[in-house]
Design a protein around this nucleic acid. Structure first.
Lengths: 173, 173
DNA sequence: GATATTTGATATGGTCCATAACAATTATCA
DNA sequence: TGATAATTGTTATGGACCATATCAAATATC
């Protein structure tokens, strides 16, 4: 597998990268043969994931939300009153790494840590009003600019089948 | 999105993580609601990719090959006589980062850098005999233990459809 | 009430990714 | 031809993300 995650400027898109020579005169170096690589699940999965994240970041540029941050806001909205450990572990984020992430969201006034009265060790997480508003706008952007692109590319039925298969892999592989 | 890539020991699997409490007596904290997250392309894509890579590493434990290393060996075998820049860029690896990778493979006698006689700046890449042998064994392991798992999980037709859709996303998204 | 566990946090190290810069070599072209 | 530009592999470096150990405060357990 492999595939870096460069956005636009530097690295050329992996597929037809090696052709980036002289478009001028001489002998065009023949393109490399991907061979069995293009049938490798991991390879194609990783490449697709990088493309999707890249597109996500472009769509969210105005809101400055990464995929990870978006997922946190979504989960906190859906599960208000949960503490850091619960939110983090549900997303597969280790608690130490979740701290800086929350510091960021909190400094932008998108969510807040509230000392729990039941258990004064834990911080309850909630979205601020601004956080709710930003998340609402983010959802619209994602739906119209990001997910809609999948329908254009694959069609509604295939899109749902894809999500279903990926979920199955994520849960049962 | 989010989802870390922890293998087995430490972090719990994201989905049913928050339940990892006491299986003993008291009140089981209700599981968190994933909500729209489970329909987010990027989220499910990333989670699937992590699972697949994790499984790949397990299957290749005896050969000590990462997905990235495997892809390099595959590509060099398919395209002998190419230089570092060509192989790296085709895989989306930046040339500076490709150096250490090759150092590793070369130190294990899996591939070799050969000074080109045409252009004494470039290094031609080839697989060593050991490299070819290891790659052959790797292919078998991948086919029987890794890719075969997809068929068991999705069925042949769905597997091909999945690869096709992912390729389309990787190339056209 | 002594001990163990949990929570959020800090420090730290590893891996991967990206950019700048460099020497050696080759291409370009005035 | 010779000066200049471009390319190749490389090093150095910084950032992002991930993982582990450890800690103090608070709580649970016995």
């Amino acid at each position: 597998m492999t595939v870096s995650k460069t956005a636009e400027k530097s690295s050329e898109k992996p597929a037809d990268a090696a052709k980036g020579r002289k478009d001028a005169g001489e002998v065009q170096a023949e393109a490399l043969q991907l061979g069995e690589l293009s049938e490798q699940l991991g390879y194609v999965l990783k490449r697709a994931q990088l493309k999707v994240f890249e597109n996500f970041l472009r769509c969210m540029a105005s809101l400055q939300l990464t995929p990870a941050q978006f997922s946190v806001l979504l989960l906190v909205e859906k599960n208000p009153g949960r503490n850091q450990t619960e939110i983090a572990s549900t997303l597969g984020i280790l608690r130490p790494n979740f701290v800086a992430m929350l510091d960021n969201l909190e400094s932008r006034d998108l969510c807040a840590r509230i000392r729990s009265t039941n258990d004064r060790r834990s911080h309850i997480l909630v979205l601020t009003d601004k956080g709710k508003a930003v998340l609402a706008r983010a959802k619209k952007l994602v739906a119209t600019k990001h997910e809609a692109r999948l329908n254009d590319l694959l069609g509604q039925a295939n899109r749902e089948a894809l999500i279903g298969m990926l979920s199955k892999i994520a849960n049962e592989f």
